[in-house]
């Protein structure tokens, strides 16, 4: 159904998607427990269905950037996981196109015992790349991450900042057609954050589609054309950012008026930049 409805320039179509998690109170995760539960009420698990997403529909066109906003626990990460194919919707349909790079977390699959370079290969292959393709990108990834000769040492010796830098560098250098970014840009020092922002802007100019979760209205406005606000798993608000701000921001020149705007918006959104 979603398939037919999708237009050729749609990259993500979320069609009436709901997701409920089964919460097991008094969870029994053993054969023994299940067996006793047949006879004793006290051992039985009580199951509750928790609706993390309710009837969410949205579509994102190629090259577009959509921001997902909302308080903690409103279902943003769940939605990203569904779009990434990690979770299955309980009902509704999902349709995507192109190579999706989920950045649900930086440095997914990094093994602390492996060196930075070995982890680049492992991480790249998790995204479906061949080792030969990754080999051509290694130099650029290492340079961007500013890890220098640390790249040959085990990742367990990295500081958390270095870890994040490497994770981010791998993901953005794999030329994803769709980037799903979940509150990942609030890491690293200011200089590196700026570099990350520039890199994302560059990828966007090259046509990358972005689905972006952030609490910072400032950052969101910089990259995104549109936003959707979730509350308790429902879309409660959606809107479009004004075009001129968008252009300003992408150039990297932050005019003071937009800055103020953004701050005002951010503070009306929620106090402080809470991180999930």
């Amino acid at each position: 159904m979603a398939n037919d409805a999708a237009q050729s320039d749609d990259v993500i179509v979320v069609d009436h998607v709901s997701k409920s998690f089964t919460l097991h109170h008094n969870r029994v995760s053993s054969l023994k427990g299940r067996f006793i539960g047949l006879f004793k009420q006290r051992w039985r698990q009580h199951v509750e269905h928790f609706h993390a997403l309710t009837d969410v529909s949205l579509r994102v066109r190629r090259g577009e950037a959509l921001a997902l906003m909302g308080a903690n626990g409103s279902g943003k990460s769940t939605l990203l996981q569904i779009v990434a194919g990690i979770l299955r919707p309980t009902s509704g349909r999902l349709w995507t196109q192109g190579r999706i790079a989920p950045l649900i977390e930086l440095g997914v699959g990094f093994n602390p015992e492996l060196t930075g370079e070995e982890n680049i290969y492992l991480n790249g292959s998790l995204y479906g790349y061949r080792n030969a393709e990754i080999r051509r990108l290694v130099a650029a990834i290492v340079e961007f991450s500013e890890l220098g000769h640390f790249i040959d040492t085990p990742v367990k010796n990295y500081s958390s900042g270095m870890y994040m830098r490497l994770g981010f560098s791998v993901a953005v250098h794999l030329n994803p057609e769709v980037l799903l970014a979940d509150e990942i840009l609030a890491v690293g020092d200011v200089a590196f954050q700026q570099k990350c922002h520039d890199k994302i802007a560059e990828l966007q100019r090259n046509g990358m589609t972005l689905l972006f979760v952030s609490h910072s209205m400032d950052t969101v406005k910089r990259f995104c054309h549109r936003y959707v606000r979730l509350d308790h798993g429902k879309i409660v608000e959606s809107g479009v950012f004004e075009r001129d701000q968008q252009a300003d921001q992408i150039d990297g020149s932050v005019s003071s008026s937009t800055q103020q705007n953004a701050n005002a918006a951010a503070s009306s959104d929620r106090p402080g930049n809470a991180v999930t």
Binding site: N111, E113, L114, E118, Y121, L122, S125, L126, G128, Y129, R130, N131
Partner: peptide
């Protein structure tokens, strides 16, 4: 089959770690 290098990397990782 497209993911064959992932299998290779996972195997090498396990043997190493």
């Amino acid at each position: 089959w497209r993911y064959r290098d992932l299998v290779r990397n996972l195997v090498l990782k396990d043997i190493k770690v």
